[in-house]
Amino acid sequence: MKTANQEQRFDQLVGLIYESVQHPGQLAPLMESICDEIGAVAGHYLHMDMSTREVFSSVISNPIFNAADVEYRTYYNSVDERLQWVAAGAVGEWRADYERFDESFVRRSEIYNDFLFKHGARHMVLGRVGGEGLDNEVLSFLRPVGAGHYDADDLQLLERITGHMIRSSVLRRRLRALESQQQADQALLKYFPYGTVWVDAACRVASFNNVAADMLAGADGICVKAQRLRLADPGADAMLVAAVSQATGAEGRRGQWFAARRERGGQPLVVSVIPAQPDRQAGFADDSGPLALVILQDMGRQQLPRSAILRKMFGLTPAEARLAEALLDNDTIESYAQKADVSRNTVRTHMASLFSKTGTRRQAELLRILMMAEPPIRI
């Protein structure tokens, strides 16, 4: 029968599990608390690709093992036979090493003899607490040399918190995806071929990119007065105020676009106002309230060819830019290779470079970024 104190400690563990979703720094105290309950000397969290053994992030609960963590991430994860065994198990299944690896295996194992024993560790229990495809989160808990292996009573606590660990992993994965998309969008806006200005509900300017800076410096139909974005055309200025109000309103936030006359004549500015939520880590105050993104399209500017824009924005080579254009035109790798008279391996190499330079990992993400970079349509 569980005591009130045991239940209180369990509730504290559950609280730490969910705190670690938004605050990864809580993973270490969470694992340390679990270690106290199951008699482990350290806990180790790994977010990694089980196929390539690439480690995306790693947290160790006990600072004594910081050097071991570095060694594991840089080499020993590549020779750790236990990872394949853990990957074969279901998410949420805890596996104690003695159940699979006997003393004969341990005596000839590099991971035990050259790594674990050197750092004073012996028995472990490991489990996948989350993952999608080859992207996995693994937790392991180490016991020192001389300590016994984990038994059913030791694993009972891990089994109780497993559901919470799985849910927290799902939330963490969703948060990583949102943060990755947000960072990509922020980077893309910085290099947009047209002006972007963040404003608050009162049209006060929070930030703008280099193209917008050039437009504001030219003061031809648009400027900043008393920290507020203003249009010289009175009718367009009133539409800007109304559009920003709609985009930052408490209910039914909507975007719209309109044209604004230039003071010196020529083609107008096309102004688009959309509701948006910027990355607070990019320099926006947490208390700034809802913001709107104002996109300024100068119809008088000569538009660069699509390939030139892609090369300039992402640092692509001519061959990579040609592949990017082909993907935007709905070409497959096979059809592009045939049209360009190159091997599919060459195309895959260029594709890998596109992923790297655009900060994406999947073709759907890549296409979304490339489509956002296309030059605006003339009207």
Rank of each mutant, 00 (worst) to 15 (best):
Phe258Lys: 03
Arg100Gly: 02
Glu37Asn: 09
Phe208Ala: 10
Ala337Leu: 07
Ala213Thr: 08
Leu30Ser: 12
Leu231Trp: 00
Ala87Lys: 02
Asp200Cys: 00
Ala238Tyr: 07
Ala40Pro: 13
Asn5Pro: 06
Arg280Gln: 07
Met313Trp: 01
Asp151His: 14
Arg82Met: 05
Arg176Gln: 06
Ala201Thr: 03
Arg230His: 15
Gly131Ile: 14
Phe117Glu: 06
Gly221Val: 03
Pro318Cys: 05
Ala206Asp: 04
Met50Asp: 13
Arg100Met: 02
Gly39Gln: 03
Arg108Trp: 05
Ala90Val: 07
Ala202Phe: 08
Ala90Thr: 14
Val70Met: 10
Tyr191Phe: 07
Leu134Asp: 15
Glu179Cys: 07
Arg100Asp: 03
Leu30Gln: 09
Pro234Val: 04
Ala147Thr: 00
Asp331Ala: 15
His44Phe: 09
Phe56Val: 12
Gly133Ser: 14
Leu158Tyr: 14
Arg160Met: 10
Ile377Glu: 15
Ala324Ser: 11
His23Cys: 07
Ala212Gln: 01
Gln227Trp: 15
Ser51Cys: 12
Glu132Arg: 15
Tyr112Ser: 03
Glu7Val: 10
His23Glu: 09
Ile309Arg: 00
Gly218Ala: 02
Ala308Lys: 02
Ile17Lys: 06
Val129Gln: 14
Arg173Ser: 14
Leu30His: 13
Leu30Ala: 11
Asn66Trp: 11
Gln267Phe: 03
Gln267Leu: 14
Gly255Pro: 08
Phe56Thr: 12
Glu103Gly: 01
Phe117Asn: 08
Arg173Asp: 14
Asp151Tyr: 12
Leu157Ala: 02
Tyr76Met: 02
Gly39Asp: 03
Glu320Tyr: 04
Glu71Tyr: 02
Gln246Lys: 11
Gly300Asp: 10
Ile274Met: 13
Met215Glu: 06
Gln186Asp: 00
Asp11Tyr: 05
Gln281Asp: 07
Ile333Tyr: 05
Gln6Asn: 13
Thr346His: 05
Val271Leu: 00
His119Val: 00
Ile111Cys: 10
Asp341Phe: 06
Gln22Met: 09
Pro144Val: 01
Asn77Val: 15
Ile161Thr: 09
Ala242Lys: 07
Ala321Pro: 03
Cys35Thr: 12
Ala326Pro: 01
